[in-house]
Structures are given as C-alpha cells and as structure tokens.
C-alpha cells in the first residue's frame, strides 16, 4: 500500500454532532452492529480536510482528544466548512465528549485531532 504524502499528519478539527434516523432502524435489525457501524461510525469531512489528513472516502480516521479516541470511516461532505466535521450522535462521539460545569456538554463542539489509520492488513495464513 502506498502512503499519501500527508498521511500520518494530525489535523485539529471541531466535530459537530447531528441526529441520524438510521441508528433507530438499526435497533431492530438482525444485523444491528453492522448496520450501526455503517450509519453511525462515520465522520463527514470537507474535501480539503480529507486531503490534509491524507484519506479517501471510506478510509479509516482516528479521532482523539484528552477524553478518548475512536476510529471511524471518512465520508465526503462537500458543504462541510474547512476545520469542522460532522458525526451522527451516538455512543461513538460520546467517547470524545466532555462537560464543563455551568455549560452544556460539548456535543456540538468537540475539539479533536484527526489522523489517518492504515487499513488492517489481513494476517498471512499460517503455513
């Protein structure tokens, strides 16, 4: 696998969460986890930020801050402003959220640093 020039760089981003109806539907699906993964484990990025991190659509991105870290798939959002990213509200972004007394939790302003994750290469079969 060739590594894009910018891969490995950490990019500061602000994540804003939004509602996603498909997470509800996943609750009743036999294949709940896979469906949840498909619709909720995603981050929608602007084209410029995707380039800056060095990922393509569908590639894995690691988002981390002092609270925790998650690995999700990148999706292109052509209308997303540079420096921001959107994520469906679920237990996934909640791994990154925090709360300051007297304020609301930062569900709609999560400061993270984003970096590309090399795809899991399947282990060679034991001869």
């Amino acid at each position: 696998m060739t590594m894009p020039a910018s891969q490995g760089q950490k990019l500061p981003l602000v994540i804003v969460t939004y509602r996603e109806i498909y997470a509800w539907i996943a609750r009743l699906d036999k294949n709940e986890e896979a469906m949840f993964e498909k619709y909720s484990a995603v981050v929608r990025l602007s084209e410029a930020d995707m380039k800056a991190i060095g990922v393509n659509r569908g590639a894995k991105v690691k988002l981390s801050n002092e609270v925790g870290s998650v690995v999700v798939r990148a999706q292109l959002d052509s209308k997303c402003p540079k420096g921001f990213a959107f994520m469906p509200m679920s237990r996934i972004p909640n791994q990154l959220t925090s709360y300051q007394p007297g304020k609301l939790p930062n569900f709609k302003w999560i400061e993270v640093s984003a970096e590309a994750v090399l795809e899991d290469v399947p282990k060679p079969a034991v001869p």
Binding site: G68, R91, N94, T97, Y99, P105
Partner: peptide, 9 residues
C-alpha cells in the same frame, strides 16, 4: 450511560 459524555457517565 449511552447519552452522556463518557467522562460524566
């Protein structure tokens, strides 16, 4: 547990 920030829950 699912809807609050992890640091709180």
């Amino acid at each position: 547990f699912a809807s609050l920030p992890k640091s709180v829950s």
